[in-house]
Nucleic acid binder design. Structure first.
Lengths: 245, 245
DNA sequence: GAGTGGTCTAGACCACGGG
DNA sequence: CCGTGGTCTAGACCACTCT
C-alpha cells in the first residue's frame, strides 16, 4: 500500500524515491563517507515499501558509486575515489599518499611459473621461460580497492621473490635491477568483478569494476612488467594529461 | 521447488547458474552479437526458476557488458566494444570506421550561451563571454553508445553553428578555424547513467557507464574544447600508449 | 544468538513497443 | 492488441558477521 512515503518523487517510482532520499542525505552531509545506512528492514518499516524495492534503490546508488556494501554487515557511504594517472611512473603508494590517503599492499601469492604461449609472445621469450607471477591486494584507508596480477620476466629480475613485495615494485625494479619504464601501454575497460577477483575484494560477484591492463617497457623495448588490475568502480578516477609533440 | 535446472552450478545459486548458462551460449557462438535472448517468462517456464531470479542473472550479464536491453523489447547480446585512444586526435568517426564499424552522429541541440563562473574559469574568459554548447548523440552500428556535451569558445570559432555538427567537430575546428589540439587533459570515471543522459541513450537509469571529460588546448595553451562524454559501459575500451621523454 | 544482507518464490499490475 | 520488460508486494529461509 505504501501508506505515507516521504516525497515519492514526481514519477512516483518508489525505488527512485528512496535513491533520491539517500542521495540527498549524502549531498547535504547528513550522511558522510564511511557512515552506515539504516538496515534494509528498518528502511522497509520506515517507508512502508517492500524490501525488494528498497534493495532496487540501494543497487542504483551502488551503481553510481555513492554507497557500497560490506557482505552481511550493511551499506556504507563511499569515500571519494583516488586519482590514477597511468602516464606517471610513481606507483600506487606514492600517488595515494600524495592525495592524503593511506595506502597498503598485501601480497596474496608470488610464484615462479613458466611462460605459456600467450605470455611467451608478450615477453618475446621462448615458451617455458621462467617468469614471476605475483598477486596482490591493495587498500586505501583500509578498504580493499583493487586486486592485481603482475607478471615479470625472471631473467630481468633474478631473485625478485626474496624481496618483500608489500612495497613498491617499481622501486625494487629500479633500485635493485636498474629497470625503469620508458613506455607504457595501458588498456582500460569497464567490467564486472566476478569469481576470485570479487572474492578477493570481498564484494558480491557482478559489482561493476574497472579492468586496467598495463604493459611496461624499458628504453630498450624489453617488456619488464605485464599487469592486470581489477578496481572497485567507485574507488578510482583516471586522469591523463597528454601533450602532442 | 526448481524441478530440474540444467547444471545448477556447484554453488547451487540459481541466478549464477543462469548467468553461466547464457554466458556459455555466447562463448560457444550459440548466441552471437545482436541476437535476442528468450523472453524472461520463457526462461522462467523453461528453467522452473522465479522471474525475479531470472532477472538477477540477466543483471549480472548486463553488468559484465555481455548483454544489454532495449526497453520493453528484450535482451540482446552485446556487440564488441570500440577502442578509444584519447591520445590520438582523429575523432570518433575516424577511429570507429578504422575498426570496421559504422559511426553516426546526431545533434540534439546547439546553442549560444554565456559563460557562468565555472566555464569562465575553464576557458580563462570573463563571466558572460559567449560560448557554444552542443549536445550530441553518437552511434556505432545503429546503437547509441554515448551522449556528449561540448562547450567551445565562440570567440575562437565564430559562426560555428552555421556548419553541420553531425560531422567531425575536430575537422571543422581545424580546417575552418585553424585550431588544432596540442594538449589534452582527459579524466575518466566509472559512473551510472541517470536522468536525461540515460534517457538520451534509451537505457534504464542506473546502468553503469563511463564518464569521460576532456579539455583540449591549442599550442598557445588556449582552451578550444571542453567536452563531457557519457558512454555505455559495454561499448568502449580505452587504450593509451605512452612513451616517456 | 541476534541481526544483517543474500537468495528465492509466486504472484500482481503497469507502460510501452511493434519480435 | 498482445507480448515485452518494469515495478512492486509479502512473504520465506539461509549464511554470515558481530552493529
Amino acid at each position: 500500500m505504501a501508506n505515507s512515503i516521504p516525497a515519492p518523487r514526481a514519477e512516483g517510482l518508489h525505488y527512485l524515491g528512496l535513491r533520491d532520499d539517500i542521495a540527498r542525505r549524502i549531498a547535504t552531509g547528513l550522511l558522510g563517507p564511511g557512515d552506515r545506512l539504516p538496515a534494509e528492514r528498518r528502511l522497509q518499516a520506515d517507508l512502508g515499501i517492500a524490501r525488494g524495492t528498497i534493495r532496487e534503490g540501494l543497487f542504483q546508488l551502488e551503481a553510481e558509486g555513492a554507497i557500497y556494501r560490506r557482505d552481511r554487515s550493511g551499506w556504507y557511504v563511499s569515500p571519494p575515489p583516488v586519482v590514477y594517472d597511468p602516464t606517471r611512473w610513481e606507483g600506487f603508494i606514492s600517488y595515494v599518499e600524495a592525495q592524503g590517503r593511506r595506502p597498503a599492499t598485501e601480497t596474496i601469492s608470488a610464484e615462479l611459473i613458466v611462460a605459456d604461449p600467450l605470455l611467451a609472445g608478450v615477453f618475446g621469450r621462448p615458451v617455458g621461460a621462467p617468469l614471476y607471477r605475483i598477486r596482490r591486494r591493495r587498500y586505501v584507508d583500509d578498504r580493499a580497492v583493487l586486486v592485481e596480477r603482475i607478471v615479470i620476466d625472471a631473467a630481468l629480475a633474478p631473485d625478485l621473490l626474496s624481496h618483500s613485495l608489500d612495497q613498491s615494485l617499481t622501486d625494487i625494479l629500479k633500485s635493485v635491477y636498474g629497470l625503469s619504464v620508458a613506455r607504457n601501454q595501458v588498456s582500460m575497460r569497464p567490467c564486472a568483478l566476478t569469481g576470485e577477483d570479487a572474492a578477493a575484494l570481498g564484494v558480491k560477484s557482478g559489482l561493476p569494476g574497472l579492468h586496467v591492463q598495463r604493459l611496461s617497457h624499458d628504453a630498450g623495448g624489453r617488456v619488464i612488467e605485464f599487469d592486470h588490475e581489477y578496481w572497485r568502480h567507485d574507488a578510482v578516477r583516471i586522469d591523463v594529461d597528454i601533450r602532442v609533440r
